[in-house]
Design a protein around this nucleic acid. Structure first.
Length: 427
RNA sequence: GGAGGGGUUCCCGAGUGGCCAAAGGGAUCAGACUGUAAAUCUGACGCGCAAGCUUCGGUGGUUCGAAUCCACCCCCCUCCA
């Protein structure tokens, strides 16, 4: 039905998305000879995935586009344990109900990136709670645990700092995580013929554990591949903004905020990110880079990246909403905005506060909209000339919101610094 | 169970009776410069307009005065059993 599957390793490699591969030559042959089943797990550690999961998520889609069958695994069971891999500290356990709810959300979220109705390589979503829940202790210890050497487990790089670092430790619970994930691979291999697991490079230890276990349990040769964890050239953490984590769920990170995150990508990272986070051809990305280099001034890459990724994650409508706000806020001319535009901005995800404005001081307004964390900070911002109301800089700390100056009778667009906007709506 | 070490403001980390709202670094925020970039420079970074107030795992205590001393409790680590 589908054409000869493409070598997904090759595809990932040319985008810089491969860190480790097991038995590469064999895997090449394995992947080009037939449609294979590939899995990647996502643990419910919050109510939504964030952009840190985007690389593996998109990789599953790449896998499918290459003609293979993707399985997105929601970690309903593993999420209750907590992956210790490269984590400096033991994590708090979340309750059963909470993890259960998160798992459902993550299943839905993951499902948007892969196709469930495309013939033999239609995607599958699974939940490892389905086979882990019923596992009893003795079976676990005798049939699964027996295949693991503690000596080998503590030698894993991923738990090294927890074992060696002074002042830290690892509970048996987290230490066991690797065994659960390994078992997942064996089960998926048995149930769906899954032969390749992909994940972030921090997953290498868990993946190789699964390869070994599958061989012992099922007498099957399976493979693993890891992708880079996204890093930024300046060394700061990827995926955070002044307002916190960039989530995939639009109720946690608006379309607009999501788009803005990508717009603000540093030059040093943007071409790499285009390869990581878009489906643009590598040659096309190189061409964009060439063009930006030869043209003086502002590069185009950030805009392309923001549009591509926002569209991938939030669809054409989400992108349109994000662009509407961006255009309105950063074009510099607010007078063009109609009353309907203002209403739309609020709907599109521009942070908005409705409150009575009679006698409201600018300081209060900044604090109540969250643009400043305290009165003192608000005064400082105003004194620094960092605050802007309806396009006009206000530098008097005693300033009061004047209802007469409202746009369309009730809107005030507050700006703090260059990029933080908030719509204040009179009530 | 025993012995020892430790819990400081977002993070790391100094501070061992007053000069401590607490050194230093990082992160973050703002201003200047710019391209809603990077680098750099400047400033801010518990709350309060201020006087001052509330912080150093928790609770009590000693003291004119405690992050610093004492008691008990909770949590973490290391070694021994």
């Amino acid at each position: 039905m589908s054409k000869q599957p493409a070598n997904i390793v090759q595809i990932l490699r040319e985008r810089g998305l491969v860190v480790q591969v097991s038995a590469e030559a064999e895997l090449d042959e394995h992947l080009t000879s037939a449609c294979r089943t590939v899995y990647c797990g996502f643990d419910p550690t919050a109510q939504s995935l964030h952009i840190g999961s985007l690389v593996p998520l998109l990789a599953l889609r790449r896998v499918q586009l290459a003609g293979h069958r993707p399985i997105a695994l929601a970690g309903g069971a593993t999420g209750m344990i907590g992956d210790p891999s490269f984590k400096a500290k033991e994590r708090k356990l979340n309750s059963l109900e909470v993890v259960g709810e998160w798992t459902e959300r993550i299943k839905a979220q993951v499902s948007r990136f892969i196709d469930f109705d495309c013939g033999e390589n239609s995607a599958i979503v699974a939940n490892n709670l389905d086979w882990t829940q019923s596992l009893d202790v003795l079976t676990f210890l005798r049939d699964i645990g027996k295949h693991f050497s503690v000596n080998a487990m503590i030698a894993k790089e991923s738990v090294k700092q927890r074992i060696e670092r002074e002042g830290e430790g690892i509970s048996f619970t987290e230490f066991t995580y690797m065994i659960l994930q390994s078992y997942d691979f064996a089960v998926l291999n048995r149930q769906y013929g899954c032969t390749l697991q992909i994940g972030g490079s921090d997953q290498w230890g868990n993946i190789t554990g699964g390869i070994d276990l599958t061989r012992r349990l099922n007498q099957q040769q399976v493979y693993g591949l890891t992708m880079p964890l996204v890093t930024k050239a300046d060394g700061t953490k990827f995926g955070k903004t002044e307002t916190g984590t960039v989530w995939l769920d639009p109720s946690l990170t608006s379309h607009y905020a999501f788009y803005q995150f990508w717009i603000n990508t540093a030059d040093a990272d943007v071409y790499k990110f285009l390869r990581y986070f878009t489906f643009l051809d590598v040659a096309e990305i190189d061409a964009i880079e060439e063009r930006d280099k030869s043209a003086a001034g502002k590069p185009q890459a950030q805009g392309i990246l923001a549009r591509e990724v926002t569209k991938l994650v939030h669809g054409a409508e989400g992108l349109a909403a994000a662009e509407r706000i961006t255009e309105a806020l950063f074009s510099g001319d607010l007078s063009k905005l109609t009353e309907a535009d203002f209403a739309q901005l609020a709907l599109d995800g521009l942070p908005t506060t409705k409150k009575p404005i009679a006698g409201l001081s600018l300081v209060d307004a900044l604090v109540s909209t969250g643009l400043a964390s305290s009165n003192r900070a608000a005064r400082e911002f105003i004194g620094n000339g960092a605050v802007n109301v309806n396009g006009e800089k206000v530098s008097d700390p005693a300033a009061v919101i004047d209802p007469v100056q409202a746009m369309h009778g009730r809107y005030f667009l507050l700006r703090r610094g260059k990029k933080q906007f908030h719509l204040l709506q009179a009530e």
